[in-house]
Design a binder for these strands. Structure first.
Lengths: 229, 229
DNA sequence: ATAGATATCTATCGGTTGATATAAAAAGAA
DNA sequence: TTCTTTTTATATCAACCGATAGATATCTAT
């Protein structure tokens, strides 16, 4: 009874660490994010992920316990990365998360945040895979739904609503603020979920700097239109 | 070489029609829309669809040539239904699709249309399956992408952009109008793609009449904010 | 009414999936 | 070195997939 030891993704009291092991784990995780992001939980195959990562099939079971364990590990990696960058943003003062009575500042911060989200949605490579992973899980309520909902979606909307209310010089967020926040974030999904379609309709091939600028200015127009008296 | 005859979905010059056949075909199509809408092309199984429709597996190959033929038939059914209802709306004068120099009328029509789209996105039963089917195909560029893009997505965005321009009292649509149209439609995806999450965040269980009214008024605020000088 | 076209059924094929058992080799730690 | 941890290689399993062959039933046209 080999009692397959599943390495917990939280590195709580790592007993013995072999350098190579962590590297293999990380390689598998990257391949899994790409695979799950592109094809979903059911659509991605463990064989394909293992091949992509350059390891053998049983290696996945060894490190993550199985397909579902690997999937959850992906979600936790995404959330951890998000929380890290949010902390950084707050500590460096680039975005003030308190709704101090400065509507203009709130508006600017809100715009800046939405520009950032747009780039996360639209950027290529691994950022795209992560965004796809999250979007898919939100739709399909898969095994990682709770993690992503509580630690990413929920706080994200709440923060946006707070900034919206702040930009309107209100102290409390109301239901209408949350609704507007939802729709504001959702409007950016055109360039994640529907990226190819949107680009095609705009007659552009890729999301280059010029296109991003066009979208940024449209975002600004939305925010201004919604929050200016 | 039995040369399996695939019944073309366009009933062009139906040579011989057996009454029961059309009924079976339609039953399969309904089950397929539900299955593909919920699980996608790869995720839905022909066995499951056949079982749901109460027919046997080979019946699908007989009527549609195979899994992919069935998928395409679903897309064409959706487009046909959309084109029919658009024609009806235009002919009954509920929505004027010409951008006659009446900004107020354009604004009202645009709001009315977005309310309608919201209901298509959010409504239960078969409308939901169809909306899911379209949203999924737009993401994944499956076998039915071209059909849906050219006959549904593209004209839908174009019409929205024209109404937006009209509401701003402009005669020509610019790139910024198309961008705003994209984001406006996309903002409603929060209640299609992300319906469950959005409801949960708003603290609601179902999309009842009261919630719909809240969303309608938020849509109106978006439209007003964007088009009023 | 009967021949031929149309529709449906049972049964099965070859292929792929996730998971796992077994064994052994490779690598780091003691 | 000796022991533990990590990785690979190979093979097998039950379950499920889409497709189709072949037999049968049903309906229409003559």
């Amino acid at each position: 009874m080999a009692e397959t030891r599943i390495k917990s993704s939280a590195p709580a009291a790592k007993p013995q660490g072999y350098a190579k092991s962590d590297q293999t784990r990380s390689t598998i995780l990257d391949a899994a994010l790409a695979g799950f992001g592109a094809h979903g939980f059911a659509g991605a195959t463990t064989r394909g992920i293992a091949a992509e990562a350059g390891v053998t099939l049983p290696s996945i079971a060894y490190h993550f316990g199985g397909k579902q364990g690997l999937y959850i590990a992906c979600a936790e990696d995404i959330v951890a990365r998000y929380e890290r960058s949010a902390t950084t943003l707050a500590s460096t003062g680039k975005i003030s998360f308190n709704t101090s009575g400065d509507p203009e500042r709130c508006r600017t911060d809100l715009k800046r945040m939405l520009h950032m989200v747009l780039r996360i949605f639209a950027e290529t490579e691994s950022a795209q895979s992560r965004a796809d992973f999250v979007a898919r899980e939100m739709r399909e309520r898969g095994p990682a739904f709770a993690i992503l909902y509580e630690r990413l979606w929920q706080p994200g909307v709440e923060m946006t609503a707070r900034m919206l209310a702040g930009a309107k010089d209100k102290r409390e967020t109301m239901e209408s603020d949350r609704t507007e926040a939802l729709m504001l974030i959702s409007s950016l999904l055109a360039f994640n979920t529907g990226r190819d379609v949107s680009l095609q309709i705009l007659g552009r091939k890729v999301l280059d700097t010029e296109t991003l600028a066009l979208l940024d200015s449209t975002i600004d127009r939305f925010v201004d239109a919604l929050t200016r008296a």
